[in-house]
Write a protein that binds this DNA or RNA. Structure first.
Lengths: 259, 259
DNA sequence: AAGTGGTCTAGACCACTCG
DNA sequence: GAGTGGTCTAGACCACTTC
């Protein structure tokens, strides 16, 4: 349950903001007010408001009351890593089809991202995903060897691989690293998504790993343009998003890679 | 400078991770260890490691030592909001040219994002930005009326508008909200960026606001494909990035808007 | 069973904002 | 100058991981 005191307080504040009790641009009560109101210590109240701040809901500056920045609720971790969970939460009918599952040596990129020796075998999966029947997303995933067996035994039309291997093999993603950019549709992309070759796609590449930091998969997702957008809030206190140089940049601008 | 004890500890840990003293996948010392080593209280140490966790550098689970997730440093808030500061930090020569500055009624989208009455006047700026001479980014910004005078007096080749109006008028962005997706280049985009019409562009739309929550600008940035990528880390504890339905989605999938 | 991080308390001082 | 958030301390108990 939401068993912690500070989560309880945070949820109550979230609801108040959602109901418009504290309107956008308005001020929150002071920490001591809230502490008294909830008969909690100031530290616990700070944990609660700190959580809301990390969600981008409220902002704060030393000496001034906290302000409400937005009214919407954030999505969960699972919803960013799992297309199926996100779609279902939005009330869409989602369907998936694995078009191929092959074991092959890792590319240099895959080996470096997954932290395995170059040329090690990975399980490569090509998958097409639809929303309410429309093809929206082409997914290309490389699974590390210790994950591969759990993926191999799933049916082609498995809706959520992450969910399935969590249940069947106890493999759960705790962390993720995402890279977002735009690419032109290749011929395979174009055929699968029913768009013209060269038309714009939003690409989301990501690595997921376990609580212990062990890489699980490296994925290249390509969305039909207009089908999804990603959002992020930042502040002087927290900047979760980064800009990176792409391959077409001048040499001076190249960033060092991950490995 | 970095005058807080916890910032000092965080920076030292960051450096250790950067130097590979704590390798990726390895464990950090325990909180009590660190507290003793720095003669600080456990609470202060927790602030330090909490900061690194929010940067995606380390992960934690109850009962187990913290683990190192990555080795790279994150960029600052300023570098996400300011193309010029980001480019300069990467050692690129950046140049900008304002192609037009016009005062006109806000579109519905602009009015809603900026929180002004529909049809209110905004200052609309079209700007082309180059890296080492190559056109990389087309920027279209709507400034609220109280910001417009400061922008109007800047020269056409001003490299950083945000920096300039901070100095000249004390207007400083403290928060931002970003939306990322892919679009096809329109004819204006194509002409300015020297790409074919319909070719893929990465679009970053964002709203910035002051410490008090007052909107400053609403911007539509379009990057030539391949020139930049954005990255974000997430975890079960913190998910800063969200997926949204785009305009081409089935009706059931539409998300409510901001205002 | 020992170690570790997660939560919580009660109090303190300081830097900053605001009227 | 009063109020507010930012930082820091010293202790406590619990849930969980690890051995």
């Amino acid at each position: 349950m939401g068993s912690s005191r500070y989560l309880e307080i945070a949820e109550a504040l979230r609801q108040s903001i959602l109901r418009g009790e504290y309107p956008v641009g308005g001020r929150l009560p002071s920490e001591s007010d809230l502490a008294a109101r909830w008969s909690a210590s100031r530290g616990t109240v700070r944990q609660a408001v700190g959580l809301l701040a990390s969600e981008g809901l409220i902002g704060s500056r030393q000496g001034a009351r906290r302000v409400v920045l937005r009214q919407e609720r954030r999505h969960s971790f699972q919803q960013l890593n799992s297309f199926a969970q996100w779609a279902q939460a939005m009330g869409c009918e989602v369907s998936s089809l694995m078009l191929s599952r092959t074991t092959r040596p890792a590319t240099d990129e895959e080996a470096s991202r997954l932290g395995v020796a170059p040329g090690s075998e990975v399980l490569y999966v090509l998958r097409l995903r639809r929303l309410d029947g429309d093809p929206v997303l082409v997914e290309r995933t490389a699974y590390t060897d210790w994950v591969a067996p759990a993926v191999r035994e799933l049916p082609d039309d498995c809706v959520s691989i992450m969910n399935s291997i969590a249940s069947s093999a106890g493999i759960v993603a705790h962390y993720g690293e995402h890279l977002l950019d735009a690419v032109a549709a290749g011929s395979e992309d174009a055929r699968l998504l029913s768009v013209r070759r060269g038309s714009p796609l939003l690409r989301q590449r990501y690595l997921t790993y376990t609580a212990a930091g062990r890489p699980i998969e490296w994925t290249d997702d390509r969305y039909r343009a207009g089908s999804v957008a990603f959002s992020v809030s930042n502040s002087a206190a927290a900047t979760p998003l980064e800009r990176h140089a792409g391959p077409d940049m001048p040499a001076a601008a190249q960033q060092p890679g991950r490995g």
